[in-house]
């Protein structure tokens, strides 16, 4: 395990050090808003002590893991391709933007536009799990992958996500624990209460969330969930007149 003290480092210096340590285990101490940690690096394991800045784990590759003990900021896991990011706190806006593989586990809340443009192809299916609540536009333009919002801190009867959830969704699945239908759902989204077999793809995610953050797995598994899926893979097909 290599330790880097980030206190006096610019983000570009920290980035250079981390790229040189690809394939190793690294602890970053005194992290204070450093952006782009782990951007595009494969096979690295980064443990962050402090607060990372925007675009944590952007373009992250297979075999990399990032664990942060505090909160993360905006654009966590932007266009992430593989590996995993675990946040023992909350994260800002646009977490998992354009994500196409790997997993992100957020113990607390996520900001606006979490999981937008997530996509999948073949073996690659990205997963985003948010333990608390998520802001507006969750899963906007989602084309693939799985988003789970647990709403563990949601009040009784309160939806665990904000408005316009799944706007333009044309693929993938969104699971919302608690069974409360979010406000102002767009017409592209089809909502149903889950049957036990619907939950199969998220059971391993619930297990990992429970184990990582010390939450009762039985409670997670026995809760009611809503499943949001697109009602068309071609939402704008009838919009145009060709000539």
């Amino acid at each position: 395990m290599t330790t880097i003290d980030a206190k006096a480092l610019h983000f570009s210096q920290l980035g250079e050090s981390l790229r040189a340590l690809a394939g190793q285990e690294v602890q970053v101490k005194n992290c204070l808003g450093h952006r782009y940690i782990g951007a595009g690096i494969s096979g690295i394991s980064i443990d962050i002590d402090g607060i990372p800045g925007n675009a944590l784990g952007a373009y992250l590759l297979e075999g990399s893991t990032i664990v942060t003990r505090g909160n993360a900021q905006d654009a966590t896991g932007d266009t992430m391709s593989g590996g995993s990011i675990v946040i023992h706190g909350s994260t800002g806006d646009a977490v998992g933007y354009g994500m196409r593989g790997g997993s992100i586990f957020v113990k607390g809340n996520a900001g606006y536009r979490a999981g937008i443009h997530m996509k999948e192809f073949g073996e690659k299916c990205p997963k985003l799990v948010i333990g608390g609540k998520a802001g507006d536009f969750l899963g906007e333009y989602q084309a693939g992958g799985i988003i789970v919002v647990l709403g563990l801190n949601a009040k009784q009867g309160e939806p665990c996500v904000g408005r316009f959830c799944g706007t333009g969704q044309h693929g993938g699945k969104i699971f919302l624990r608690g069974g409360i239908v979010p406000n102002e759902l767009p017409p592209q989204v089809f909502v149903k209460q889950t049957e036990p077999e619907d939950l199969e793809p998220i059971v391993p995610l619930l297990e990992q969330y429970a184990a990582t953050f010390g939450v009762d797995l039985g409670m997670l598994k026995s809760s009611p969930y809503l499943l949001l899926t697109p009602n068309s893979a071609n939402p704008y097909q009838s919009l145009y007149a060709q000539y």
Binding site: I116, K119, E120, F121, N234
Partner: peptide, 27 residues
Amino acid sequence: TRMTPEGSDAISPAPHHDIYSIEDLRQ
């Protein structure tokens, strides 16, 4: 090549939903 599900529309809207300012573009 696009890494998106076959047969589904490939949509890239005009706004990048993480860019609302020059600072965001800089990011």
